[in-house]
Computed example of a mutant assay.
Amino acid sequence: MMLKYQLPRIYESILPREILQFEPQEKKATCDACAMSRPQNKAKIHYRADLKCCTFHPFLPNYLVGALLKEETSTEAHRLLRGKIERREYALPIGMVAPVKYQVEFNHRDEGDFGQREDWLCPYYNKQTQNCNVWRNRGVVCTTFFCKSSYGKTGLSFWEKLGSYLWYVELALLEEALAMLDFSPRQVMTLLDYHNRHEGTSAELKSNVIPEKTSRELWNGYYDDQEGFYKKAYEVVANLDKKSFHELIGEQGQSLEEDLFAILPRLKLS
């Protein structure tokens, strides 16, 4: 399956053709039969078959939250996202963020925790079907995480480079949406501080929700229509063309693209 059909649809009109049309033949890392679970994997580090590599709370940037909320068929995703908004469970203008309490614990995890901790299970994971409720609009970590690669070390390097590139893209796009919706650079920096935390305040480490007063301040006037805000963020990004996108990611983003173009011809099935 081409990457075009594995990445969020919103990228189809802006990412380079070389990336979108690449068709990875990954046979070693499969979601339906987890390659890291018993009995396939006999190594010390292994995952539970019912949890797989989904013991992780991913970040969903604002425009992908908007994409999910605009998709009429994503009814379960709607329920999950609206629940987070109603509970003030780190639904922020940058996107859906893992609670600081979760982030700190995950970032200080012990060897063997990942793939085993059911209490860390992704909130978007469907335990009944053992698949993802937001798959087509999932974030960069979930898109590019491969425990094994049919292309060997070069393949793992490719996925790592794609992850770096897509993270840069996510950051550029979510910041563009914030700028167009009247958030200042200082406000953006404050919001980004809620992502990938290694430490938290005593209050943050005791609760999975943000106090209403703090949340209202962070939302910059959009607190009472967060769903509408996410949809507007989606529209900002959806209206970008390739020229605007490349201007947005600048030299650093284009350098990350070049790294991908360079490694693609080196991918050989092992």
Rank of each mutant, 00 (worst) to 15 (best):
E217Q: 14
L178M: 10
Y222W: 12
E204C: 06
K231F: 09
Y230D: 02
P211K: 12
K213V: 14
G200Q: 04
L191V: 02
L181K: 01
R197Q: 08
R216G: 01
L192W: 05
T201G: 09
N220E: 11
K213G: 06
T214D: 07
Q226D: 08
Y223W: 09
T214N: 13
V209N: 12
R216Q: 12
F183A: 06
Q226M: 11
D224M: 09
N208E: 14
F229A: 01
N208L: 07
F229D: 02
L178R: 06
E212D: 14
G228M: 02
E217Y: 12
E204T: 02
R186C: 11
Q187H: 00
Y230G: 03
E217L: 09
H198V: 13
K213W: 06
N196Y: 14
S184H: 01
G221C: 08
L192A: 10
D182W: 09
T201M: 14
K206C: 15
D182H: 07
N220S: 14
M189F: 15
M180F: 09
H198M: 14
E227Q: 12
L181P: 01
Y194H: 02
F229S: 01
A203N: 10
L205I: 02
S215C: 12
N220A: 10
R197V: 08
R197F: 04
V188S: 10
G228E: 00
S202T: 11
S215R: 01
Y223V: 05
Y223P: 04
E227S: 10
G200K: 04
N208D: 15
D225S: 09
L178Y: 02
D224W: 08
R186E: 14
K213Q: 13
Y194W: 04
L178S: 04
H195P: 00
D225T: 03
Q187P: 05
P185A: 07
K206A: 15
Y194I: 03
S207G: 06
R186K: 13
E212K: 14
